[in-house]
Design a protein around this nucleic acid. Structure first.
Lengths: 191, 191
DNA sequence: AAAAAACGTAGACAAATATCTATAAAATCA
DNA sequence: TGATTTTATAGATATTTGTCTACGTTTTTT
């Protein structure tokens, strides 16, 4: 059975027939390590469901420093939502950290599915709801806690990111430098 | 015409009849300044649409320090989404910064409306979409920029918050202390 | 297998931010 | 009006975090 079918059934009920229609709105693609799903300045033409692999989304500042804003692995949706919805040039880059297999859906096709397929609406609602909850938490941690607590929380809640991305990526995701994360880890190990 | 009717029509199309059904799922309430919409440890029973007034949502840490995670004024929805959706005790407090008039909808009634009213689904989808975009931006700024740039960006994008909340609240929202914000402002004025 | 790139850690120092105490002005309350 | 609370700022100092350079290890590429 298709991996996306399993995935959708975690969130809503969909018949096999509806799923065929659903899947018909996606295209398959392989993205090799270090290649781009989205480059800064481009308009995000697709949402990508990650079947296999790992990706990262980052903002590059005036000094050329990358700031990781999102990490993605299997069953995540990778997209700059703002660019995708408003068709504005993205300030983000999304690239493959590992070789990836993704399913792409265009903005046009999301709108079609929203009209045709109840399950897709349910899915979108649920995903945005969960995303809203998760980002709220991330903001709360970011403004309330020290780097040490934020890192501990990250390790507890996202062990699969810790396994697949190096420390400097995780540091950036947490809004600190790799040097600071290295010190934080040293401090934790001493205890 | 009802303020909520205007509001909904910014995001989707709704007939006056449907709006009556819609509105029937809400209850009116006044919340006086410093009174609570939600207290830490409670389960969020309602989403609140703010017709008039201003509210703030904050997390209180072990030291008793308040960390402002959200600010709300007219036409904002105030809620701890996590608590509301999963019926778990909230870690947040939401209180009225000014005397408020709100429209409350229970979890039960949101689910009813989701089944009955296409416009409500559209509205939810759009709101979560916009919220996803806005929080993504907030996270990007939080991990990428200095306090000074974050504050400038805040003033440019949320002048109506600057007008209605004191500096120490805005400082907390930005994840810095009031002292730091005061210095940042001094530095900006010098230029 | 050799070369190159990426990664993690370390130390010295700089910069940003927090903490604490104090004070004065402004807003609110009684 | 007078008293109280809230708000904003300031200075001195402590703490946290960033910057930079260096080095050894691991991983990847050729």
């Amino acid at each position: 059975m298709h991996p996306l079918f399993h995935y959708i059934n975690k969130y809503t009920i969909i018949s096999e027939d509806d799923f065929k229609v659903f899947l018909g709105h996606f295209t398959q693609k392989k993205i090799r390590k270090k290649h781009f799903l989205l480059e800064e300045g481009e308009i995000a033409k697709h949402m990508a469901f990650i079947v296999k692999g790992a990706m990262r989304q980052y903002y590059i500042d005036e000094k050329g420093v990358e700031h990781i804003v999102n990490l993605y692995v299997e069953n995540y949706w990778a997209v700059d939502r703002e660019s995708f919805v408003f068709c504005t040039p993205s300030i983000y880059t999304i690239d493959a950290w590992e070789n990836c297999e993704v399913l792409l859906i265009s903005r046009e096709n999301t709108l079609k599915l929203r009209n045709q397929c109840r399950a897709f609406n349910e899915l979108l609602l649920t995903l945005d709801e969960l995303n809203t909850i998760a980002t709220q938490k991330r903001i709360t941690y970011s403004i309330s806690f020290t780097a040490e607590i934020r890192y501990k929380h990250f390790v507890d809640n996202y062990p699969y990111f810790v396994d697949r991305f190096p420390q400097h990526i995780i540091a950036s995701y947490l809004g600190i430098t790799k040097d600071t994360l290295s010190r934080v880890r040293k401090k934790i190990l001493k205890k």
